[in-house]
Design a protein around this nucleic acid. Structure first.
Lengths: 183, 183
DNA sequence: ACCATGCCTGACCGATCGGCCAGGTTCTGA
DNA sequence: TCAGAACCTGGCCGATCGGTCAGGCATGGT
């Protein structure tokens, strides 16, 4: 895991700066200064700025893939409830990563991050319960992006009641029963 | 109003490109090319890139100020309902402008746009009904940013049922009665 | 003692971008 | 007709940024 101390520092510092100023808003020189190394060192450990972002996002991407896979086996309100619960968990677990993508929507146009798009689409569809009613789809979009926003807003605030509050508001908005269905 | 043809073209084209690629993602050279004039012409008509954005956002800013002023006279659920209805109207009326700010959250750090921040805060507080309960404030944040997202997503899609769908999902999420209170 | 490897760096490069300027052209009113 | 204002432009500048490169330094194995 910890192949190198400096390498880990770069990731830690990058995560903080990217979350604060956005990916495009954070020059390599700022990362280098915060780490205490030269800009060239960053490029020694990583193939480029994009590679730093990709590695930072990898655990979150894996979790998103996982959630996506879990949802394919479910249908109806089971799928909707699992999608809400799973996504709230994912947002809380990877707040800064979600906030990062949220704060720079054009990042998903990067080739390396294109894999996220279909997952988000399927997640949105799961929120809507596969309904063709535009009102349901719009509600799903509102909930999805609203939950993401919290990743930004509360990036450094481990509020204990946050999970419940998010789950409840999402279920209300999506017209889902308030209690967890399967646990 | 129409002081100059080229000037109007610049604003029209800028609105389109800013909405598509974001403010920071749109160089002046692209605007000039799309307008069919030189980059220097842009800077003849406007003090700078920021000035173009400021002028584009002025009508939306005025509407936001207006909504803010209307809300100060109301309290309780009246204020919450008026905030929801007013903000949905504002988002639908100024979709591309809202989407623009949403797509580049760091724009509000621009001095010229700092005026928006307190308005958004008050609007969020109005959504929460002034409640000190974190769950209410979180619900308000989810709704506020969720509604903004739609400005991006449906920027060019004048869907007729959009207003109703947005109002209903917002009211559900905020635990407000579903019918308009005062009309 | 020597070399190979991993780690790190200053200096530099090319591209991009916002903005400035001197000067040219067109329009307008006296 | 002509002066001045309004409009427009190519060319240039400085700053920023991602990325490259040759070389320095420490470490550890032989």
């Amino acid at each position: 895991m910890a192949r190198n101390r400096t390498r880990d520092d770069i990731l830690t510092v990058s995560a903080r700066l990217f979350a604060r100023d956005g990916f495009r808003g954070t020059p390599l020189s700022d990362i280098a200064a915060a780490v205490g190394c030269s800009k060239a060192t960053l490029l020694y450990h990583f193939a480029g700025k994009d590679a730093i972002l990709r590695e930072l996002l990898r655990p979150a991407a894996a979790a998103a893939f996982d959630l996506d896979a879990r949802l394919t086996g479910l249908t109806g309100d089971d799928a909707r409830a699992a999608a809400v619960d799973g996504f709230v968990d994912l947002v809380l677990e990877y707040r800064s990563e979600v906030g990062l993508l949220y704060a720079d929507p054009h990042l998903v146009d990067m080739p390396a991050l294109a894999e996220f798009k279909p997952i988000v689409d399927r997640l949105c569809s799961a929120f809507a319960g596969g309904s063709a009613d535009p009102a349901d789809q719009i509600a799903a979009q509102v909930v999805l992006s609203g939950l993401c926003q919290v990743g930004l807003e509360h990036a450094a605030d481990p509020h204990p009641g946050l999970r419940d509050a998010l789950t409840r508001v999402a279920r209300r908005a999506l017209l889902l029963a308030s209690d967890r269905p399967t646990d």
